[in-house]
Write a protein that binds this DNA or RNA. Structure first.
Lengths: 133, 133
DNA sequence: CCTACACCTTCCCATTACGGGAAGGTCAAG
DNA sequence: CTTGACCTTCCCGTAATGGGAAGGTGTAGG
């Protein structure tokens, strides 16, 4: 099957497939005589694996490690779990950051009248308490 | 004051200050005879505004709008609030996405023994239920 | 057989918000 | 007068793609 079909079957765009190949995340595809990339079910399966991992927010580098483990029958589940837990922690840290920003900003927005007048606690806060420089 | 002092006083690195000038977020700084950028308190105040806005997660483009409003004495607080609320919504959406990923992954990780054996629900899930391609 | 048209190829540019570092000019102190 | 800390511009690299150009391929219909 050509890249377009592999894309359709895996949910990974042709652009992305080429990119993944280029950076070495996935093996170089076989080629037809005319130079077209050729894929089989196994390739599509791998692409789906990558796609699902991306949906869970793993970075390409993490996915590279996960793929290696996936293909290693002597892997330990501990190694996989370690990557997963590290990723969870990263995401939770990011969530905490975002939540803190939301809380602060929400607080400010709540005290903003949101009318036609220029007085605005949001700008005052950003300004450092004093008004216009 | 030179860019280094402005950086120290505002908490914005010299690199960033030049970048902000380059993309037009802030006005071009005055120059000394020898070509050095020169800043005053007002500039530093603006830089601090930008810095605080960045700490709340606003994008450069949003900050550009906020700066314009800040400097517009005829602004309406409604315009400011609108930007803030939109930003809050974006962040909440991002949080929800991340939280969903964390939940899913946590669930999988909980069922992973994390020992020396290769069996791993995380990889099984990424694999689509079937084992190794 | 020829012509569309859909598909494929590689290559380069743009995105976001900077940091790093090179090559070279400036300034103040010792 | 030299050293070292500044400053300048310029270009590269980041993460993970999307867009699009220029050009080859494959197939289906007239």
């Amino acid at each position: 099957m050509n890249i377009g079909q592999a894309a359709g079957a895996s949910g990974v765009s042709a652009k992305r497939i080429r990119y993944y190949e280029q950076i070495g995340l996935i093996d170089s595809a076989a080629r037809s005589e005319s130079g077209y990339r050729v894929y089989d079910e196994r390739d599509v399966h791998t692409l789906r694996f990558v796609s699902r991992a991306r949906q869970l927010g793993f970075s390409i580098e993490e996915i590279s490690d996960l793929l290696a483990l996936w293909q290693d029958r002597h892997r330990s589940s501990a190694a996989v779990k370690k990557i997963a837990l590290a990723h969870i922690e990263e995401m939770q840290k990011k969530i905490a950051e975002l939540q803190s920003m939301v809380d602060t900003l929400n607080d400010l927005a709540c005290h903003c009248e949101g009318d036609a007048r220029p007085e605005c606690p949001i700008l005052e806060e950003l300004s450092g308490g004093e008004e216009r420089a």
